[in-house]
Write a protein that binds this DNA or RNA. Structure first.
Lengths: 330, 330
DNA sequence: TTGAAAGCGCTACCAA
DNA sequence: TTGGTAGCGCTTTCAA
């Protein structure tokens, strides 16, 4: 910037004005400065400029997701990006892989970078570690899971309801032996879905069989193994509720490999891009990711813009999408 | 930091040393400073600290992708992240949606943020606008498409070869009326795939029929319409080569809707997560995204670490993955 | 409309 | 082992 000022024969401050498009610089001087900028290939340094700025914003937000390569995280990221784009806010994305220690270190790293806000899909059970930063006014919006130990905005879906929708649907199609494949019960959503599954069964007059609830299933490959074990039971299930999309994918693969693709009913939780063209087309409980993403972006930027109202907890209602796999009869 | 220094009864510089874990501070002083840091909830400011640092790194890299929500972009992002994680480098991700103007503005914004390097899947035809920054030593690695008008590292696959693999395979299964659905010919990869398609046909003694080459098909929905038009021809194709994964998805949907799912052969370009469980399982030409991503990360960080050798142009070889849809006979 | 000086939060350099 | 001073690239404040 000093070089630009020298070349244009003006002061530092004038270059600053031109670069920031502040009013009150004569067209003549503006042109001279812009010529110097182009000639020297000068690039304005955003970090340095924000350092002295009153608000001290970095024009970055952090997106702390489960795994940017899964479709739920990726769509969330995209929704946030669409909103951030208009504001010239950059997004720093990182994946947790459900590792609590990574969450803390990533959040810490983002705070050190002075992000203006955070979208967080937590992997930890409690987020007390955020207390200081929240008190200092860092906007944080939780997604998919509610904050524990601190209070801040969240956007979630009603997981219990979603599970009941799935199980009710299977019951309505004549099933009584309904298995569930779910993630670790320590994960809030997995636990809520498990409870919804059990409550729907009881409501249908079926006592949940612990042998049919395969929990702590983490990956698609784990789900294949889990479904194999379920199918090998003496009294195997006639229907499966796969409580996360990657688990549903594993279940589909397992059923294919066993030649049971059109014989055992399957309902997934979370839609994914090709669920309508797998074989058979997958019936799912859908949480509308675009709606979630838009809601999150709205909250986050409202906070960044100074909204200091009490934390909002938005709970969205999932819906059943009927496609075929859930309508197979026992 | 001043407050921390005051509370701990030491100088600014000493706090700086403790915070940066520099050697040569007595355990006693270190403990005092750390207590003050905790008590005040002090957060080190990375931007400010890098401002004065010799190398002036921001510890951020930019990933300029087509669309973070598509699986190719998302996987690329993830591969880069895995490498960046070890180095405490953050990733700023943005989507282009194939819009050239966005590319320039995003790159400019990233340069203003002083990212240490750039992964770029360009939407522009030429990238002369990067010349200044490249000359200034900004590391940029192109992915999927080669740079035009400037020279810098790139990681691509042999698109012509990939298209020939697909068409040869269909020819080997008895097809002569082979259609192609492709993106805009102005996109380098789309053009290369079109040429590969034509050359494979000619090599098989089939004169390419322009009516069978549906180009400028942009989205999955466009692909549905395009396949409909192809199927409505007087002499419709018995096989389709879909030259991008979203186009293959559209083609699958169209074939399903027409009840031709197992009757018309289909080979896609680019694998995607569920290609093996769609109906029928999709035969594809695969470019291994993890390999690409790892290669990109390797190049990018090598440059950031000071590698000033001539630009590397890595060309990877795609492979045919046989799954069923490509082996349907006419 | 323009500029000079001080300072944002931190680190480099050199001295104690 | 510790601290003081200058300065990173920019903006703020106030004066001209």
């Amino acid at each position: 910037m000093r070089d630009v000022a020298a070349l244009a024969g003006v002061s530092l401050k004038t270059v600053s004005r031109v670069v920031n498009r502040e009013a009150g610089v004569s067209p003549d001087v503006t042109a001279r400065v812009e010529r110097a900028v182009a000639q020297l290939g000068y690039r304005h340094n955003l970090a340095a400029s924000n350092l002295r700025r009153a608000h001290g914003r970095s024009a970055m937000v952090g997106a702390v997701l489960q795994d940017v390569s899964n479709s739920f995280s990726a769509s969330l990221l995209r929704s946030l990006e669409d909103e951030a784009r208009d504001r010239d806010v950059a997004i720093v994305a990182s994946s947790l892989d459900e590792e609590p220690e990574r969450e803390r270190s990533i959040v810490e790293s983002l705070v050190r970078r002075r992000v203006d806000g955070l979208l967080l899909v937590p992997a930890t059970e409690r987020q007390d570690y955020l207390a200081d930063d929240l008190r200092n006014g860092l906007p944080v919006v939780f997604v998919d899971r509610r904050p524990q130990g601190v209070d801040t905005d969240s956007v979630t879906v009603d997981n219990g309801l979603g599970a009941r929708l799935a199980v009710d649907h299977l019951v309505a199609h004549g099933h009584r032996r309904i298995a569930m494949v779910g993630d670790m019960p320590s994960i809030q959503t997995a636990q809520a879905r498990l409870e919804g599954y059990r409550s729907a069964l009881r409501h249908a007059g079926v006592e949940p069989d612990p042998a049919l609830a395969a929990m702590s299933v983490r990956s698609s490959d784990d789900a294949i193994a889990a479904v194999y074990r379920l199918l090998d039971l003496d009294d195997p299930p006639t229907a499966i509720f796969a409580a996360r999309n990657s688990l549903a994918v594993g279940a589909i693969r397992a059923l294919h490999q066993r030649g049971l693709a059109g014989r055992v009913a399957l309902v997934g939780f979370d839609d994914f891009p090709l669920a309508d063209i797998v074989d058979p087309p997958l019936t799912v409980v859908r949480q509308n990711v675009r709606t979630i993403g838009a809601e999150v972006a709205k909250r986050l930027f409202a906070r960044i813009d100074g909204d200091t109202s009490a934390p909002h907890h938005v709970v969205l209602t999932p819906e059943l999408v009927v496609r075929g796999s859930g309508e197979i009869r026992p």
